[in-house]
Amino acid sequence: GEWGFEGLIMTDWNGGSSTPWKSMHAGNDLIMPGGKGRAMNILQAVRTVMPEFDERGQVIMVQEVPFAPVFAASWNSFTVDPEGPDTVMAPLGEGHTAEMKDGEILVDGEKVYMQANDMKTFFNDPASFVPKICPANEEVAFILDDGRAIGYKGHLDKKPRLCLGDVQRCAVHNLRIILKCMGL
């Protein structure tokens, strides 16, 4: 408004390295998600999103792009940290059992991983690329309920960051642009 600009400011799909709340507060009117990771980033700006686990207590790994075995771990609003004050629990499905062996969490004899390798690592050496990295260990994970669940230590971000005033400003501006485009 300071310069009299009457257009719409929006990100490119998958564009922008900022977080939604910073971007909107700075004057962005429309954030284009560009994939599940970006959409989740927008959702986390307004509410706490719990981590997602499969039946083995493995954090869900979502493939980021269809052409490469590059994944993102669905920790969502949770950050794994051995010093963290919060704990999240991953219950195991029927017939699965967790155990601690050599300091690492195993479920049905297989390692449980906490992270995935990134796109840069894949393109640097695709022949020896390993999609999942960082096995869950006793520093950040523990067994619960006689092997029926895995607990993870860390920080759960419970604070919404998107200001209501920024959302209202963007909504009003977007509606004004739409009405103008319709000739109303």
Score class of each variant (00 low, 15 high):
Thr87Gln: 14
Thr87His: 11
Thr87Met: 14
Val88Asn: 04
Val88His: 04
Val88Phe: 05
Met89Val: 14
Met89Ser: 07
Ala90Gln: 00
Glu94Gln: 13
Glu94Ile: 10
Gly95Asn: 14
His96Val: 10
His96Pro: 08
His96Ala: 05
Thr97Val: 10
Thr97Asp: 08
Ala98Phe: 04
Ala98Leu: 03
Ala98His: 02
Ala98Glu: 00
Ala98Tyr: 01
Glu99His: 11
Glu99Asp: 09
Glu99Ser: 10
Glu99Val: 15
Met100Lys: 06
Met100Ile: 08
Lys101Gly: 04
Asp102Gln: 07
Asp102Cys: 08
Asp102Arg: 03
Asp102Val: 04
Gly103Trp: 06
Gly103Pro: 06
Glu104Thr: 02
Glu104Ala: 13
Glu104Ser: 07
Ile105Met: 04
Ile105His: 01
Ile105Gln: 05
Ile105Thr: 00
Val107Ser: 03
Val107Gly: 03
Val107Glu: 05
Val107Lys: 05
Lys111Met: 12
Lys111Trp: 06
Lys111Tyr: 10
Lys111Asp: 07
Val112Thr: 09
Tyr113His: 13
Tyr113Asp: 11
Met114Gly: 11
Gln115Ser: 14
Gln115Trp: 13
Ala116Lys: 05
Asn117Tyr: 00
Asp118Thr: 04
Asp118Leu: 07
Met119Thr: 13
Lys120Asp: 11
Lys120Pro: 07
Thr121Lys: 05
Thr121Phe: 02
Thr121Val: 08
Phe123Met: 11
Phe123His: 07
Phe123Pro: 00
Asn124Thr: 11
Asn124Leu: 12
Asp125Ala: 15
Asp125Glu: 15
Asp125Thr: 13
Asp125Ser: 15
Pro126Ile: 00
Pro126His: 01
Pro126Arg: 03
Pro126Leu: 05
Ala127Thr: 11
Ala127Tyr: 10
Ser128Thr: 11
Ser128Gly: 11
Phe129Ser: 02
Val130Arg: 00
Lys132Tyr: 15
Ile133Trp: 03
Ile133Thr: 14
Ile133Ser: 11
Cys134Gly: 13
Cys134Pro: 07
Cys134Ser: 13
Cys134Gln: 10
Pro135Ser: 12
Asn137Trp: 05
Asn137Thr: 11
Glu138Ala: 14
Glu138Met: 09
Glu138Lys: 08
Glu139Ser: 15
Glu139Gly: 13
Val140Ala: 12
Phe142Tyr: 07
Phe142Ala: 07
Phe142Asp: 03
Phe142Arg: 05
Phe142Gln: 02
Ile143Thr: 06
Ile143Ala: 08
Ile143Phe: 01
Leu144Pro: 01
Leu144Tyr: 09
Leu144Lys: 13
Asp145Phe: 04
Asp146Asn: 13
Asp146Ala: 12
Asp146Phe: 06
Gly147His: 01
Gly147Glu: 03
Gly147Thr: 02
Arg148Trp: 03
Arg148Thr: 06
Ala149Ile: 01
Ala149Ser: 02
Ala149His: 00
Gly151Glu: 04
Gly151Ser: 04
Gly151His: 00
Gly151Thr: 06
Gly151Gln: 00
Tyr152Glu: 12
Lys153Trp: 07
Gly154Tyr: 09
Gly154Cys: 12
Gly154Ser: 09
